[in-house]
């Protein structure tokens, strides 16, 4: 997955071979539409590991990730009529999982205005004294720094690195060019480098 992610972030999408998974997704969706429950189960089986992994990396907690995975699928089933096929099903599912996670973040305070959310609900990336040692703490700092990014950059970084999505898919979903996604990624990496560098001082 790591190798694929790195490739996805740096390879020209136009040179990517046709995605065999998309045809498979469409066939499964057609079967689901026809009422085939087993097809729906296969769809879940094909996608839930990636969804769980994403939510685990976002939340940093296995139980939370499992619960959010369940909630994401519930929302996906309810919203499947809104799936327009613009992006792949897995991309669409990724966005739902991502939104579910953001909603989860805001749940303790319920809902503030979007303007005040950014600083109040995103965890402070500065490490505590206990967290300053060990690789787990380093991973947690990275996670917090990613969550502190502006929304468009945060979505881009997590989609490309943790959601395992190709640049082309993210661009299609966001309605922008692949060049714009790469620019976002670069800005995000710059900001992360700055944040993590300051922490390390």
């Amino acid at each position: 997955m790591i190798a694929m992610t790195q490739m996805a972030a740096h390879v020209n999408p136009s040179s990517l071979p046709p995605d065999p998974g998309q045809a498979d997704e469409r066939a499964l969706l057609a079967a689901v539409a026809a009422g085939d429950r087993q097809a729906a189960e296969r769809l879940v089986g094909q996608t839930y590991r990636a969804v769980y992994a994403l939510l685990l990396r976002l939340s940093g907690d296995a139980d939370t990730a499992a619960d959010l995975t369940q909630e994401s699928y519930r929302r996906a089933w309810a919203g499947l009529s809104g799936f327009d096929g613009r992006a792949r099903f897995s991309t669409w599912l990724y966005r739902i999982a991502y939104t579910t996670f953001l909603n989860h973040l805001r749940r303790p305070r319920l809902f503030q205005s979007l303007d005040e959310r950014q600083e109040e609900t995103v965890p402070d990336p500065t490490p505590s004294a206990e967290e300053s040692v060990g690789s787990a703490a380093a991973g947690d700092r990275l996670r917090r720094a990613v969550l502190a990014l502006p929304d468009d950059l945060r979505f881009t970084v997590t989609a490309l690195y943790w959601g395992d999505l190709p640049v082309r898919e993210v661009a299609r979903h966001e309605g922008v060019t692949t060049v714009a996604i790469r620019k976002r990624l670069r800005r995000a990496l710059q900001m992360l480098a700055l944040t993590l560098g300051e922490e390390a001082r």
């Binding site: 469409r26 539409a33 879940v44 499992a66 519930r74 089933w77 499947l80 799936f83 096929g85 991973g139």
Partner: peptide, 27 residues
């Protein structure tokens, strides 16, 4: 420090959550 492998019972929980009727319009 994080195991990316989902819990063993997660798939079963997800399958159990699949509704009886799914409204879908194929792309």
């Amino acid at each position: 420090g994080l195991d990316l492998e989902p819990p063993a019972d997660l798939l079963a929980r997800l399958k159990a959550d699949i509704p009886e009727q799914i409204e879908i319009v194929l792309p």
